[in-house]
Amino acid sequence: MRGFSITIGAVILLVIVGAAAMIGMPTYNVYAKQMQGKAAYEQAVQDRRIRVLEAQALLDSAQLTAQAEVARARGTNEANRIMAESLGGPDNYLRWSYIHMLEETAGKPGREIIYIPTEAAMPILEASRSRPAQ
């Protein structure tokens, strides 16, 4: 009889555990879904924050690049103005710039420069045409 009472006790214990599991599982499933939803929401918020920070970094970079370009253009403008004034005006600056370009390109393959004196002291630009094929 003692073995029978242990068996009945074990069966009752199993029934109680099974009933607790049947009652607890739906509650646990609801809790687990809530936690998954909160985790997904926090992940979405974090992803949005990251996208906003990346966009802000791109905006800051573009603004700083634009400021650098404006500063460079102002510097170039000022340098050109100073050079033109020191050479006696824009026409003399353009002549100097042309002579400087001729100096830089002199001696490069396929580039021959022929100086021809003219009445107006302006160069003839026909010399830069390519040679006919031989």
Rank of each mutant, 00 (worst) to 15 (best):
M1Y: 14
S5C: 04
I6Q: 13
T7S: 08
I8H: 04
G9C: 03
G9I: 11
V11K: 03
V15Y: 00
G18Y: 05
A19E: 07
A19V: 13
G24D: 00
M25Q: 11
T27C: 09
N29M: 12
V30W: 03
V30A: 06
Y31A: 11
A32L: 06
M35S: 08
Q36K: 12
Q36T: 13
Q36L: 02
G37E: 13
G37P: 01
Y41R: 06
Y41L: 14
I50A: 01
R51Y: 01
V52Y: 05
A55W: 03
Q56L: 05
A57H: 00
A57T: 05
L58V: 06
L58N: 00
L58K: 08
D60S: 03
Q67F: 05
Q67A: 12
E69G: 00
R72F: 06
R74K: 07
G75D: 10
T76P: 00
E78S: 07
N80Q: 07
S86M: 09
L87G: 00
G89K: 01
N92V: 05
L94G: 01
R95M: 14
W96Y: 15
W96G: 04
S97W: 10
Y98E: 15
I99Y: 08
L102S: 07
E103L: 03
T105C: 07
A106N: 09
A106L: 04
A106T: 11
A106R: 01
P109K: 07
R111Q: 08
E112D: 04
I114G: 06
Y115G: 09
Y115F: 15
P117F: 09
E119K: 13
E119T: 14
A120L: 15
A120F: 11
A121H: 12
M122Q: 14
M122L: 15
E126R: 06
A127T: 14
R129W: 06
R131P: 10
P132Y: 07
